[in-house]
Design a protein around this nucleic acid. Sequence first.
DNA 1: TTATTTTGTATAACTATTATACTAAATTTC
DNA 2: GAAATTTAGTATAATAGTTATACAAAATAA
Lengths: 398, 398
Amino acid sequence: MRHKGPIGNQDLVKKINMEHTIRTILAHRPLSRAKIASLTGLNKMTVSSCVDLYLQKGIVAELGTTGTSRGRPPILIDIDETGGICVGVDVEINQFTVLVTDLSGKKLESEVYPLEDKDPLYFVEAITRILANLAGVHNQRRLGIVGVGVVIQGYYNHNTNIVGFSANLQEWNGFHLMEELSRRNPSLLFYVKPAPYAGAMGEIHFGRSRLVEHLVYVTSSWGMSVGVYNKGELFTGSTGTAGRLGHSTIHMNGKKCTCGNRGCWEMYASIKALYQQLEQTPQQVPFADIVDNVNRGDSQTTSAVHELGHYLGIGLVNVINAYNPGVICIGGLLGLLGQPLLNSIWGTLRESIPARFLEGLDIYCSDLGELGVAYGAVSLVLDQLPGTIIRYALLEQV
Amino acid sequence: MRHKGPIGNQDLVKKINMEHTIRTILAHRPLSRAKIASLTGLNKMTVSSCVDLYLQKGIVAELGTTGTSRGRPPILIDIDETGGICVGVDVEINQFTVLVTDLSGKKLESEVYPLEDKDPLYFVEAITRILANLAGVHNQRRLGIVGVGVVIQGYYNHNTNIVGFSANLQEWNGFHLMEELSRRNPSLLFYVKPAPYAGAMGEIHFGRSRLVEHLVYVTSSWGMSVGVYNKGELFTGSTGTAGRLGHSTIHMNGKKCTCGNRGCWEMYASIKALYQQLEQTPQQVPFADIVDNVNRGDSQTTSAVHELGHYLGIGLVNVINAYNPGVICIGGLLGLLGQPLLNSIWGTLRESIPARFLEGLDIYCSDLGELGVAYGAVSLVLDQLPGTIIRYALLEQV
DNA sequence: TTATTTTGTATAACTATTATACTAAATTTC
DNA sequence: GAAATTTAGTATAATAGTTATACAAAATAA
């Protein structure tokens, strides 16, 4: 059992510096070689050699000079964002959404497909056809499909690559999703994550939390869960179920939950709980109407949302104590409730946690909108993009 | 704001391979050069050159040959565990314990000192004298004091290096501990962590969890808190208060807590709660007597411990959902309650979490005994030992 | 005694970084 | 308007750690 991490040699050195270079370009583009050198601390020549490699492979391009300051004008380098596409797939109960972006994350197209059959193999076959079609349409792009992020209902065991437990799509339980996807699409890279994890990653790449190191993403569509982003990566726990807080106990003698436990957070603070409080169903009152009612100031809805925020706040006490995040993002349908919900949450937090533990904490509602989860799926690809690019650039032959 | 991680050059390569070498020696000592090469994947010559450097500096030594298999007998290499000392300091309310070990973590000596003055400067002056004395006593050791782990009451902000909040030693709140320690001991490396974090690290280095990747350490001496170890490092959160679960809500309309919140876990599952349940105080009945009573089967104590385990279990539901650990270790005084407590915990867990989320989970009571926290302090030093050794070995001049 | 096996070293080739010197191309100054 | 200055980028040779090859050392097996 050998010690972790690659061994040190020239290949590793090259890889590391190629990574510094591409990450810096991605973060500050467009950029001159000189600027890359000063930002990374790399030697000018090292930067030139890395950039040359990327240029050769057509991954970056020279944009020409811009004469702003004095001295020889810099040649701006930029990634060719049209050189490949990212695919994000959000699998819901009755449908799945496919979002296609360029390498900068800019949306190119999105489409919703029905999930006609709950059998996961149906999905695998369907997405395989869609991906084959996308590969054809975008075949002039040098890098093709750089990765496919798949956001699933339920948990995902990253050790076994098996769908762990999906309350909404029971047929998927125990399915070897990665294996089936990879077998049918051997040239493609897949990244599978549960929705709250992808939500967290989405906020880091597309939301208000670009440079954040510690974020917790809270989401409820019907049940509830959270995703934890910590110092550059998702906190998954040993088998991929970290953040299953919908079933954490906030009221030990409270309402009986479907999971068998009592007083689960999602019995009080989920969309499900909100509908119960309103004595309505989504069939009777679509969630958009509830949002409208809150924004209009409807008293019954407002008070229900206030109560929801109170219970959300109680659970967030536990989130804050458990993870000590710098930022909490409320996503999913919950996030659409906006400021009224936040006000209520803060009221409860201030009563429940000494102020020193709330200092600097930012809580906001996601503003990624309807495609939020699909953007989360794309962010799984973007997160690995530097590695993908480097591997391509360092290939011996094209 | 430049991208994280060092840039790639030959120095880095050397450092990486020196690290592979020393970590492999530490993990499998004693070891031949050939074995190091095969374990690490490094080239034989690379291993030879790294080992030579360590030999030159006297950090490792050749033990001579052992002719087991056929072929030329290997020369065994081992670290000189007497080449330096680790110091661990456990600061409690009225006293502090200093544990001295060799580089393998073997205890050399330990001593308890009274904390005569609550002013943190008193402690700083006292430990400075003790360290100066230790440095003198062990001055024949090449590396001297390789590090000092300090375990404090309360939290510690790793960004500001200020003691965050200490309920038991209020005088320490806001104290620049690291600065004061380093100013007086400029040649020493200090590692400061709250007790539950050090507890977790101690289990990884000294306890039953050597190769564990995901561990949560739960401790109560009076209040409660947890430390989370995740994939090689402590999970601290953004400001170092992650794991403050003693004040997480398990009963939202429950007992009023000193923190202002209601239904905090530690109102039900801490040593404090146990004494309240027993209507006793530690002055009347030392904790050791409670442990004796449980082991003797005293009915009142047994039922109180059973209840404690039930409440612990409820909070552990939240721990399991939040962190998805592979191992939970019960430490501090709580851990002394042993199997009766574990039985009660498991009873509650099985009622509260579907079995699939408990699969493979190991829960045990720490068996590190009285010096457990002090060993945790030493483990903070051992955790950084490879880095310390490498820095020393790569120094230009001695 | 010889062949084989395994350990460890010596040597030269390889390659990415790096320091130095240099060219390129702009603005500022005189 | 020419010269000086400043900044960007390249060319070249030096440096240094890994690595492949060959080889020496020291044991067992045949």
